[in-house]
Amino acid sequence: MEKKGWDGFEIGAMLRTFDGAVRDIATTLPENRPYSQSSSFTASVADWRIEKPLFNKDYCIDCQFCWVYCPDMSIISRDKKMIGIDFDHCKGCGICVEVCPTNPKSLLMFPEQKDEESALAEWPKKEKKADTEVKED
């Protein structure tokens, strides 16, 4: 889509988030919404990152802590399952990694250039705590 310049918008005009009508936004998932070019959803802050979180679904318990604490709506959860990270809107703050309760963490920060395959290959193994068995909730 061609972007309008600063003088392409009417003065004092409303910016419409959607092209066309959406009956009920609160129950329409982002992939079904007709975002217009005025919505920041169509923009990207990917270049803010120096480190990115990567997701290992083998250890994920779908607790959704990362979803609720993500400040950038970048954790994609569908049908109560965490399915991935939205790298257009992730700013790489690292909150999701901090709040991840699993052992080992199912989200870890890696340098921006790291490819997913090699990251998954070198994912740390479960840490054993002395004597006691670690219980995963």
Binding site: T17, S40, D62, W67, D72, S74, K80, H89
Partner: peptide
């Protein structure tokens, strides 16, 4: 939280 996570955000990234 699982039930909450089915919400569709009305506040956008970027």
């Amino acid at each position: 939280l699982k039930e909450f996570s089915t919400s569709a955000d009305r506040f956008e990234g970027a």
